[in-house]
Design a binder for these strands. Structure first.
Length: 405
DNA sequence: GGTACGCCTGGTTT
DNA sequence: AAAACCAGGCGTA
């Protein structure tokens, strides 16, 4: 019996338009993938997964830890796994299909977004194959607590430190050790905050420690997962507390806001990437810039923007792009990232005019929508007025009430 | 309900 | 080269 159980390379037929891992794994969704030579590596659900891609296939290989230290070889398998995998005792293909949400036809979605949004149509062709990946909710929560007022390289370092110091060791590639992400329990303890500060987490050390404590001690098992979109169930088989009514995106968002270090932006990141709410649109400074530059949101005098503005940007994009707005947002977000700037080309002016005209039409047609959407547009229109006549709408975001301990 | 300000750190710019 | 500046926000007053 070998110390490590390594599978052969297998492959899934998949075009680069349906998924481009080189973009999707680098665009600030996940902070744990490491590229070694031409292979992307990451520990997911207790195994080391390696990926590489060519024009027609996604190739994957899995390495299981030594059996004794294996945290969880899945005892209970989710329902939708193919028979072959169950018989082989390897659910990795199912994991990949879930992780990348391969049931969605991405090319069709791009077509749909392009049809309803000239700006998307202009930007997207150079950024195909970008998907929202379905990550573990707890990891997503902690990673995006780290992301506040921070940049991708440092976020990646911090997440790596969490894994190395608190997560279970799964395997090696060369000299590189690969750990899984630590559980809430592993991050609960009196020394955690001080230690994380030593490790360079800054003020986020407290947020992580407090959030881990809340989740592991004051919430029932599976609480975070219970905020998952029922139409997009999670992958890991966890027991989830029952709810009287199906949870909504807004409810999940509100519940997350009660955690320390979680504001509207982080809550939306968790909703979108960790809980399957594809309509969640995280509005950070980049998305705000995009909204101002390409979608006629007005200039503000203040550096920050208000919760009302935050909601209005999200509602606007949901109206344009529909129920998968968060997916569309990630495409434009990536196109706007500095690290991808070489991919973005100079844009012809003619399209800008087209965008403006389209925007006007959308504003008018919105009057025929229901009252909720009318209110949304009213706010947006207000913002647009500010654009023409900058006077007062500054804005800032505030959190509602947090249960202070 | 809206606004200003401090916060850790480190990569990047000046 | 040292010193600002800023980066995928949030909590507090």
């Amino acid at each position: 019996m070998p110390p490590l159980r390594v599978s052969e390379w297998r492959k899934l037929p998949l075009s680069l338009t349906e998924l481009c891992i080189n973009t999707t794994l680098r665009c600030g969704q996940s902070f744990r993938w490491q590229k070694i030579n031409d292979e992307w590596n990451c520990v997911l659900h207790g195994r080391l997964l390696s990926l590489k891609q060519d024009e027609s296939f996604l190739h994957y290989k899995v390495t299981w830890p030594k059996s004794s230290s294996s945290p969880r070889k899945p005892a209970v398998l989710p329902k939708e796994i193919g028979d072959i995998d169950i018989q082989q005792g390897d659910d990795t293909e199912a994991l990949i299909r879930h992780y990348f949400s391969l049931k969605h036809d991405l090319a069709a979605l791009y077509d749909q977004w392009s049809e309803s949004d000239p700006n998307f149509k202009k930007k997207a062709p150079k950024f195909t194959g970008i998907r929202i990946i379905s990550q573990d909710a707890w990891e997503t929560l902690v990673a995006f607590i780290c992301s506040s007022n921070n940049h991708i390289s440092r976020i990646s370092q911090m997440v790596h430190k969490l894994c190395v110091h608190y997560g279970p060791l799964i395997g090696h590639i060369g000299d590189e050790a690969f750990h899984d992400f630590p559980s809430p329990q592993a991050l609960t303890g009196k020394t955690v905050e001080a230690h994380l500060r030593e490790l360079g987490f800054g003020y986020r050390a407290k947020y992580i420690a407090k959030t881990a404590l809340i989740v592991s001690t004051t919430k029932p098992e599976g609480w975070l997962e219970s905020l998952t979109n029922p139409e997009s169930p999670g992958w890991a088989p966890v027991s989830i507390p029952v709810r009287d009514e199906p949870i909504t995106y807004k409810q999940a968002h509100e519940e997350l806001l009660l955690l320390t270090g979680v504001g509207p932006k982080v809550a939306d990141c968790v909703c979108l990437m960790g809980l399957g709410w594809s309509e969640a649109v995280p509005v950070d400074t980049h998305v705000w810039q995009i909204a101002q530059r390409d979608y006629r949101f007005g200039k503000t005098k203040t550096k920050t923007f208000s919760k009302a503005m935050y909601d209005s940007v999200g509602d606007h994009f949901r109206q344009i792009w529909g129920p998968q707005a968060g997916w569309a947002q990630s495409v434009l977000f990536t196109a706007n990232l500095k690290s991808f700037s070489e991919q973005a080309a100079a844009d012809p002016k003619s399209v800008d005019i087209e965008v403006e005209i389209k925007q006007e039409i959308e504003s008018e047609s919105s009057l025929n929508l229901n009252s909720r959407k009318r209110r949304t547009m009213a706010i947006v229109e207000q913002v647009k007025v500010e654009d023409d006549e900058p006077s007062g709408v500054t804005a800032i975001s505030r959190k509602r009430r947090k249960t202070r301990k």
